[in-house]
């Protein structure tokens, strides 16, 4: 009598959840057709907005002190993708950014190099040249960044151009128009096409969560990216507000954790846009630590796309050592 009053919305298909989200499930099946894909994505367990924000808020009250803080500052520096994505970028600016990336604080040799420098494709060659001999990777935003509004051939050409110039990592944007209108297959196809062009290069897929409206969409987009072969899922281009937020990062971390559980493949998360303070970076690291665990506490599992963040990390680092704050001008500014 009770169950008869329950009318499931068409295609909710949640009964598939246990089947498709158990370790070893054949995810290739869900990509067999548009209908299967849609059914899978909309059948993912929902994300409750209030609960997600409460959890992110609760974790942001963690108090990180002394050694734990120093460890986190070191880790955060190593996770930075030092970024400049302006129309006004010059060769000189990129070169100076690269020098900073190799050696963030010349006064303190214990500060490690950052993970990568992130630029537009036309500046990849300059960056590659400046970073020769270092561990710092060159990442290029491609696929008609930031809007993604171009034809498939143009996007793929963009990626090829960046790779030919020497990019080690490609940050692509998804087609939000296609995603929001429900053409999931089109989004997936594009990610797979870029993946193919990338070859061995590291692929980060930007979801632009500020345009996705709901956490459910963030989760679905993250799954799409992972199904398409992303090495990283990335929150934002930095050109749309809101950019990265703690709850969005939490949803994406839960998605990569679940994907790892099913497939055994570890996908990283990159938060980008608006992260300027060391305190914010530490909050993200707490989120990583308590959601996906220590396996992701590494530049191969988590990245910050940022520019001014680096100097605040350095300032906090110096403060931890000298027990007093130094001036902002004690560090080079890009």
């Amino acid at each position: 009598m009770v169950t008869s009053t329950r009318v499931e919305p068409a295609g909710s298909g949640y009964a598939q959840w246990p089947a498709m989200l158990v370790p070893g499930a054949q995810l290739s099946e869900v990509m067999a057709s548009e209908a299967m894909l849609r059914r899978f994505l909309s059948g993912l367990p929902g994300v409750d907005q209030v609960g997600t924000e409460l959890r992110a808020g609760a974790l942001s009250t963690r108090s990180i002190k002394s050694d734990a803080k120093l460890w986190a500052l070191d880790m955060a520096v190593r996770m930075v993708d030092l970024t400049t994505l302006e129309g006004a970028d010059t060769d000189g600016k990129v070169m100076s950014l690269c020098a900073k990336a190799r050696r963030p604080d010349p006064a303190n040799p214990s500060v490690p190099a950052v993970a990568a420098v992130c630029v537009y494709p036309d500046l990849v060659a300059v960056a590659k040249d400046s970073l020769a001999g270092s561990t710092v990777q060159v990442a290029a935003v491609a696929t008609a960044f930031p809007s993604g509004r171009a034809g498939r051939q143009v996007k793929l050409a963009d990626v090829r151009w960046a790779l030919e110039a020497g990019a080690d990592e490609i940050d692509m944007v998804i087609d939000r128009g296609a995603f929001l209108s429900g053409r999931y297959n089109m989004v997936l196809d594009e990610i797979r096409a870029v993946r193919e062009v990338c070859g061995a290069a590291h692929l980060k897929v930007i979801l632009e969560t500020g345009e996705l409206e709901t956490y459910d969409n963030v989760k679905r987009a993250a799954w799409l990216a992972m199904l398409g072969g992303a090495d990283f899922v990335k929150t934002s281009t930095g050109k749309v507000s809101p950019a990265a937020t703690l709850p969005v990062a939490l949803v994406m971390l839960e998605a990569v954790r679940d994907f790892h559980e099913v497939t055994g493949r570890r996908v990283g998360v990159k938060v980008a846009g608006g992260i300027r303070k060391a305190k914010d970076a530490l909050r993200y690291l707490v989120l990583v630590n308590e959601t996906v665990g220590e396996a992701w506490l590494d530049p191969s599992g988590f990245r910050f796309g940022a520019s001014s963040l680096l100097n605040d990390l350095l300032m906090q680092w110096t403060k931890q050592q000298l027990h007093c704050y130094v001036r902002p001008d004690d560090f080079s500014q890009e």
Partner: peptide, 9 residues
């Protein structure tokens, strides 16, 4: 990597 929170009394 393992990250142990320092005491924060």
């Amino acid at each position: 990597m393992h990250w142990e929170y320092a005491p924060a009394p």
